[in-house]
Simulated assay, not measured.
Amino acid sequence: MVTVEADADEVERRLAAGELRCPACSGVLRGWGWARPRQLRGPDGSLQLCPRRSRCTSCGVTHVLLPVTALLRRADAAAVVVLALVEKATRGVGFRRIAAKLARPAKTVRGWLRRFAERAEAVRSVFTVWLRAVDADPVMPGPAGGGFADAVRAIGALAVAIGCRFELPKVSLAETAVAVSGGRLLSPGGPDRRVQHESTLTPG
């Protein structure tokens, strides 16, 4: 699985131009049909998601191209999930209040918060490494009042650094979280420094 920008036309262009690379062997990815379509619950209603599938011309392995608007195996858009994390990290809001604000089941939101808390230190570490890679002289985020909040602050710091380096008007926390974690922010194994990401967070 490879993360890509949300613009389907741009993804097609990059596939045709051979600009997307296989995370297994760095071979060129080409279009290979489509993954199963599904509904994604966004901040303002349902979204249709039908990710492109690709196949490596070198090793033959297929990869789903997941847009930066989605997290792996989550029914809710990344923006919704990350908003819940920010509410918890910055305001200390409990899962029931967050669920009410987002109009989501309390059990679902509690699951997001628990899974993120379980891997908060790994998230903080990975995003801090990326921060140093993006910014030659980064302002490292200070303690935010606990591991959970520190991890969210690291995501935010990287989003700001990407925006500054590439002169982008705004880089969202959700897109940063998906791109760097390869969509696995809340999945088993969590984010990994070796994740291959192909998003528009870094233009090219």
Rank of each mutant, 00 (worst) to 15 (best):
L85K: 00
T69C: 03
P67F: 00
G111V: 11
A75C: 03
K88A: 12
R96Q: 14
G45F: 05
C25K: 14
R53N: 05
A70T: 14
R55Y: 01
V86E: 01
G42T: 00
A78C: 12
V64Q: 05
P37E: 07
W32F: 15
Q39K: 12
R38K: 14
G92M: 06
P105S: 09
V28H: 07
L40Y: 05
L29P: 05
S26R: 15
L71A: 04
L66K: 04
R38A: 07
L49A: 10
T90L: 11
L40I: 11
L102M: 07
T90I: 07
D76P: 02
R30Q: 09
R96N: 13
P43S: 06
W34R: 11
G31S: 13
A24P: 01
K88R: 15
A70I: 09
G94R: 04
G94V: 09
A99W: 00
A77D: 01
A84Y: 02
A78S: 14
F95G: 03
P37R: 05
S26W: 11
K107W: 06
C56E: 13
E87K: 15
L85C: 06
A89G: 03
E87R: 13
E87W: 09
P51I: 07
L72F: 08
L83D: 08
Q39S: 14
K101G: 14
A99K: 00
G31M: 04
R30K: 08
C56T: 13
R97P: 03
A89P: 00
G94E: 10
K101E: 15
S46P: 15
I98W: 01
S26V: 09
R52A: 14
K101S: 12
A75G: 09
R52L: 14
L29W: 06
E87P: 02
H63E: 08
P37I: 09
P23D: 11
V64I: 10
A77W: 01
R36Y: 08
T90V: 12
L47W: 10
L65F: 05
V109E: 01
R74K: 09
C56D: 12
V86R: 13
L29V: 00
A78M: 10
C50N: 14
Q48K: 15
D44P: 00
V109Q: 02
F95Y: 13
L47M: 12
L72S: 08
S58H: 10
R53G: 02
L85N: 01
G94Q: 06
W32T: 04
R110Y: 09
T57E: 10
A84W: 02
D44Y: 13
R74G: 00
G92P: 09
D44G: 08
A35N: 12
V81S: 02
A106L: 01
T90N: 13
G31I: 00
F95H: 15
G94A: 08
V68K: 03
V61F: 01
A78Q: 06
D76H: 06
Q39N: 12
T69L: 07
C25P: 05
S58I: 02
V93D: 08
V61W: 02
A78E: 06
G94C: 03
L29S: 07
V82E: 08
G111P: 00
C22Y: 02
T90W: 10
V82A: 01
R96I: 14
R36L: 11
S54E: 00
H63W: 14
S54F: 01
L40A: 04
A89K: 00
S54V: 02
T108V: 15
E87G: 09
A77E: 01
L47C: 06
R110C: 03
A70L: 04
R91Y: 12
